[in-house]
Each structure stands twice: as structure tokens, then as C-alpha cells.
Write a protein that binds this DNA or RNA. Sequence first.
RNA 1: CGGGGCGUGGCGCAGUCCGGUUAGCGCACCUGGUUUGGGACCAGGGGGUCGCAGGUUCGAAUCCUGCCGCCCCGACCA
Length: 488
Amino acid sequence: MAKEITPREEDYSKWYIDIVKKAGLADNSAVRGCMVIKPYGFAIWENMQRELDRMFKETGHQNAYFPLFIPKSFLSKEAEHVEGFAKECAVVTHHRLMNDPDGKGVVVDPSAKLEEELIVRPTSETIIWNTYKDWIKSYRDLPLLINQWANVVRWEMRTRLFLRTAEFLWQEGHTAHATRQEAIEEAQQMQRVYATFAEEFMAMPVIQGAKSANERFAGAEDTLTIEALMQDGKALQAGTSHFLGQNFAKAFDVKFSNQNNKEEYVWATSWGVSTRLVGGLIMTHSDDDGLVLPPRLAPIQVVIVPIPKPNGEINEVAESLMDELKAKGISVKYDQDKKKRPGFKFAEYEMMGVPVRVGIGKRDLENGVVEVARRDTKEKSQVALEGLADNIQQLLEDIQNNLLSRAKAYRAEHTTEVNTFDEFKDVLANKGGFISAHWDGTSETEQKIKELTKATIRCIPNDAVEEAGKCVFSGNPSTKRVLFAMAY
RNA sequence: CGGGGCGUGGCGCAGUCCGGUUAGCGCACCUGGUUUGGGACCAGGGGGUCGCAGGUUCGAAUCCUGCCGCCCCGACCA
């Protein structure tokens, strides 16, 4: 593990890459735009998955799995949808290789051309709705509440580890409902689930809101979003939940008989979060010494370091502490590596973002204490052996809470109300963060602001207060403020 | 797709301009020893078709031609 991390002040983007690589989360792979998620990074994702999966099931959803490949013709059935994704699709055209006639490796066998090309799924609405056609006949089959954990491929022009990769892991929920209202409520419910997850587990505060028409998912009537603010003042779309109306039902002819034996198209939602959340996690909490992880998602919550090295007495104390912590459901590692000295280990676990470090040395033990260091503030204190496990459990909760309140404070400081376009540009250039401003509701205005400043409307917040105002750009009347920001 | 950069042991790099014995350095790794309360030190050791393919030359990591790949910055997007 390397020593140096580029400071955030110097180059935030470089800092981010350093953290990802040096904390052992992921690497670039031999494949353009695709990353290798390393064990430590994957463990974080698994922790996210576990909690999300639990929350999905608690809200009545079941997991299923649909194919990686989508026949090309499916994609074109929903006009807006195909337009939105056509430019970034990987396409399978052949199914066989053969030896190169020139004797150099293998080449695609031209005789193995597919009748119909297959698209590597960029998202699964089409293949799923084609299946739902067979599953849904009656109102008794509704609602259908399905989630899938999968990989998808979007051939992006430019990629960044976790934040935007050509292949990424995610979950996508796809639900079918008998009424418009029920589908809207489902989309809203999942937005709340995402927001709860982000705040309670990632300690990442998010704004819940709706996307403007420009930013809406291809094929959706309404896109709900959770938007987080990163340390560099840029916004991150952390999860979306779409109300799809009857668009896909009509495209795939999915109808049900209602209680009066009348046929109706079903109403749909889809919603997803991805490995991008790992990127958001990093950019919400971490510092120039490395990763900072919220205890609830940390693969290792507590690390015990023997000082200077393991011995009988230290092992005894460490092992009994481990037993107590494990009994409380806390994941703990005792680092008995004799080759590395304590200082090296301290730096290494700080790099990895382990929330709590316990140092046990003979000098401390003589006084009946150990050294407890917290990663979020880097504070160290002497803590009595008596009641140690309880104290650590409490400390983990404190860290979790502190990270959230710290992130909330940052966001509050970096959310600015502006009333003129000059102010708007000034805040964007010099302060960053969310800009709360009146907008006249037109795509044209949004487009022009984007062209002039590169900032976009991140969302129209759910809790926006009704107030009379004038659009920051056009001066036309507006009834509420929306949030603008530079975005990832 | 534009702009920039890079490709040399696992990782990070030097060497390339100006061709010349055996391709070097740091980290990591292996062995032994001394150390050990914030990234230890000494000694010894292993590991390389210098991105690929041609060409020039007595001789190519280095010069020429052509490919390929990746990264970073921007436009597009989760």
C-alpha cells in the first residue's frame, strides 16, 4: 500500500483515484472503461447490498433474474427509451470464433452471424416487460414487485472508477400496478427507501426531489431522485425511481382484466442504485489520510493492533475483546502480523477507513487501559478495559452520527439561495454546492443556463416551499425554488 | 470525438533527445540478523521477450514506419 495521497486541495479528482486505488477498493482493468472491484471494495458493496436487499424485501419485493442479452428489436419498441440508450449500447453480432487463417490467434467466424443482434442490457425494462406480458393477465396478478441484482453495460465516452464505468453493478426494481396512483406511490416509496439507506447507512444526506423534463429517464413520465453533495461542491445523482406510466405496458402490450372484466394497460415503475454509491461514499467522508467509512458499512469496524507486537498477555486481552465485540455483532480484526510495526499498521488502517482502532500495549495494560482511536476525527483516548466493548459499541454509533451531521453541515454551508443570474454565476464559480433559485419551469431556460454555466437542475425538491418569485434567468414568474449544481 | 499523457520485473519510475559491454533505482517479495508506543535498519537473494509488428544498423528500450492499448482533461451520460 502506497504512502502518498494527493491532497484534495491540490487535485480533487486525483485524490479520488488515489483513495480508490490505495485503499484497495478497485483498479482499472485490461478492458477499457471497466474496473476490477477488489475484495475490500466489494465487501463495502456487499454490505450495501445486504441492507438494501433487506429493505426491498421489507417493502414486499422479491428478487428474480433476467437475461443479460436483449434482442435488438425489443429496445426499439419504446421510442424515447431507445433514443436515450442507443448511443451507448454494446452489441453482440456473432456467436463463434475461429482460428485466424494467417495463424495468428482467433478471429470472428463470419458464418456465425446472428440473425438478430443482441444488445448487452444497458437497463432491463424491455426484456422484463416482454416477460411481464406473459405473467400478467388479471388484476389478481398485480401488483408485481420484482427486483434484480445485475450488471449492466453502458458504453460511456469517459469513465471514472465507481462513478461511471462501462460495466457496473446495480439493482433494478421493476414493478407493475393496476392503477396510476399505486404506481406513483411505489415510485415515491422507493425514493424514500433510497433516502433512508443513504442517510442511515452511508451517512450521506440526500435531497429528495423530481427531475426536470430534460433530466428525466428515457421512457419515464416522472423521475424521482436522491441527490447528494460531494466535498468538491459537485452533486451526485445517487439513485433514481421512475414512474413509467403506461409507456412500457403499451410498448409490450401488457394488459390485465380488471374486476369488471375490462382490459387495461398496467402502470409501471423502475428504480435503481448502483456501485456508484461507493464513489459517493468516498467523496462524502474521506480525507487526505485515506478512506473514511461509516461504521454501518465498514467491512472491518474495529481493528486491534498489538503494540509493539503480539504476545501472550496482549493476545489474551485482544481475544477476549474480540469475543465481546463479535457477540455484539461488531466485525473486528486482530492484526497479528509480526513483520509490520505499529506505525505502519496505523497508517494502513487509516487508509482503509476502519472506524475504530484499538491499540494494546504493555504500558497501557499496566494501567488497565487501551488506546482507542477514531478514524473520523483522528482523536485518540485512553479507555479502561472495564466496559471497553460497550464503549466501543457506543463510539461506533457516535462516529456514524458524527459523519452524518458533518456531511449535513457541509451541505447546509454549501447550499446557497440566489436571486440574480450574476449571483448564480458567482456562487457557482467561487463556492460551488447547491444553488437554490427560482426557475420558470421551461426546458429552454434550463438548457440556456446549462450552456452558459454547465450547471443543471439537480431536482425540484419534494419539500420545496411555495413562494412567489422570478426566474433567476428569464425573470418570468415562478412558484418555487429548484436546486442547481454542477454534477458528476 | 477533440486536447494532453503514458506503455520498461507485482507497483511507481529513470534511461529514449545524442544507438554501444551484463537495462538501472525505490517500494513490494524471499533468507538471515538487529529492531519495534506513528509508515525500522543491515546484509544477501529472486524476478524483465523494454506494448505489438515491420524497417534502418555490425549493434535498437533508444532511430524510422505502422498498429494496439490504457489513463487524464473536455463535450455526452447513472
